[in-house]
Nucleic acid binder design. Structure first.
Lengths: 329, 329
DNA sequence: CGCCCCGATGACAACGTTGTCGGCGAGGAG
DNA sequence: CTCCTCGCCGACAACGTTGTCATCGGGGCG
């Protein structure tokens, strides 16, 4: 900018005025400055500008895995909203590691991002407190953080309830639940929805029909259940990785899966899913964030986005005749 | 930092020394400073630091769609390499729009990123010239840019050749090619590989077996070919979106698809693919980039990553008896 | 004709760091 | 005892901007 000023024979400040389209510059002067800018290939140093102004027009996104379709869809939505607000987006993956999440968030804060969208990897966000007090905005997405900040969730419990109820309406009385580690918020919520659906249908909860754990064990868990004395007639899977694990293991039971996935419609039978809305999640979280960045006060909000049941065949199968012997109800 | 200095009763510079772990500070002083830092919850302003030092420890990633599994896998690999080099990553989607790509890149450059990994949306990157001259490093990934910079590609032509040859070995003589707009580099390359495979097998190129265009038209295009007088007995699809479009249209021809996709193994029959290596693409591109950022000189390099043929069933089907009447060869 | 006002421009400080250099005090050597 | 050296520390400028205020000149009005 100094060079431009020299080249155009004006003061630094005048160049600044031209670049920022501030009023009070003669068209003739402005033309001279613009010509010099063009000639020198000058581009304003945004970092310096933002250092001076105090706003960085940058947000940070911390998700579990940039490569996971669910989260990357979310990221895309966040990016779109950021774009609309003239902000750029840092992004990083926590890989479910709370320490890595913390490091990323702090690195973003050190860059003085205006705000953060975080998919919490761990339950404890005490490290965020000083940052929030320092004026950084933060929104938790997909799972609640350990802090009283705006939060956007999917209707995990209600969605699982709807999915299980869908199976019950088809006459199933023994529905297995295959979920992830219950330490994960969404897994626990979905399990709760499953239990509520059974209870509301007047069915007792049979612990032998519930298997919680890492997806790679889901296939074997289901095999064991099916080989047992009183097998399930239908299955509800708690997330896509588990769904895929079950399918890869060769099982094609009557099935409703939580979370939609690419090509679910092309399998035979098509997989009935309780679809979440990753783009909606990202969009909503980013919108809340920018409200806060714009100065929005008030108590933390908690928004639950509805899920949508998408029947595709696997969830509409009746109990296989003979699988559930008489005497069950 | 000023506050910390005051609180600890030392000069600004001493705090800076402590924060940067520079030598020449008495342990006692350092302790006092660290205590003050802790008490005030001070965190170094990275932007200001980097403004002074000239390096931002930041790279920019411009891909076609953050939400596309192929590109987001690539992004994850880039992120990992960036992390290993202590850098953060801006990311943005161009959505195949050259103008948006340009805006993103220039926004990143205005933030003075050290380098860029770009999946080119358009053929012209003249706008990058001044930035490169200004010292920004850039690597093109997946497609070449219109500029002499490091480039990492998949073996598009060789991969397509291998996929088509695979079908020819099974006895197919009329293989259709369904590809994307030939203005897209990868589409054109794959078409070339297809043609080369046919030629090397002594088969003439039948234009009626080639359909290039947007994925949403691929299903109809194949339907038309199959309804024609001399239909193909096998199909080669040029990318995953086209593959999925064909499958959604209900076709299950003998098929080899360029680019792997989630659940390809679970369809019936499993889809034989020519798998690319998105993580390898991202990793390699990022590694080249950081070499340049570290000062690596020398001419632009062009690396082609090999593809891998993954047989899953659909590509091993023989010609359906009767589809290719006698008289063809 | 003189004064005042206003529009255009410029000088300077500040944002939060780090690089450079100089001062100051202690300890060792002559 | 004096001088030199060396280790610790601080003052100041600089990075590239923008905000604040001063300056300068011209035109309108009394």
């Amino acid at each position: 900018m100094k060079d431009v000023a020299t080249a155009a024979g004006v003061a630094l400040k005048t160049v600044s005025r031209v670049v920022n389209e501030e009023p009070g510059v003669t068209p003739a002067t402005a033309r001279r400055v613009l010509a010099a800018i063009e000639r020198l290939g000058y581009r304003r140093n945004e970092s310096a500008r933002l250092l001076r102004r105090g706003r960085t027009a940058t947000i940070g996104l911390v998700i579990e895995d940039v490569g996971d379709p669910f989260y990357s869809g979310m990221g895309r939505a966040v990016e779109q909203v950021a774009l609309a607000h003239g902000s750029l987006m840092f992004s990083g993956s926590s890989g479910e590691d709370p320490r890595r999440e913390r490091d990323l968030v702090l690195a973003f804060c050190a860059r003085r991002v205006d705000g953060l969208v975080i998919v919490p990897a761990g339950p404890d966000h005490g490290y965020l407190r000083p940052e929030l007090d320092a004026g950084v905005a933060a929104v938790f997405a997909d799972r609640p953080g350990g802090l009283d900040a705006d939060t956007v969730l999917c209707a995990n419990s209600a969605g699982a309830y709807a999915g299980v109820a869908h199976l019950l309406r088809r006459g199933h009385r023994r529905v297995a639940f295959l979920g992830d580690d219950p330490a994960i918020f969404t897994a626990a919520e979905r399990l709760a929805g499953y239990r509520r659906a059974l209870a509301d249908a007047g069915l007792g909860a049979d612990p032998s029909l519930v298997a919680m754990g890492p997806p790679e064990r889901a296939g074997a868990a289901l095999s064991a259940m099916l080989a047992g004395g009183d097998p399930p007639t239908a299955v509800f899977t708690g997330n896509s990785r588990i769904t895929v694990a079950v399918l890869r293991a060769g099982h094609r039971p009557p099935l409703v899966a939580f979370d939609d996935f690419e090509l679910a419609d092309l399998l035979v039978p098509g997989v009935t899913v309780v679809a979440q809305d990753p783009m909606g999640l990202g969009r909503t979280a980013a919108e809340l964030l920018f409200e806060r960045i714009a100065g929005g006060r008030g108590p933390a909000r908690r928004i639950e986005l509805p899920t949508r049941l998408v029947p595709r065949g696997s969830g509409e199968l009746p109990p296989a005749p003979g699988t559930a012997g008489p005497g069950h109800r």
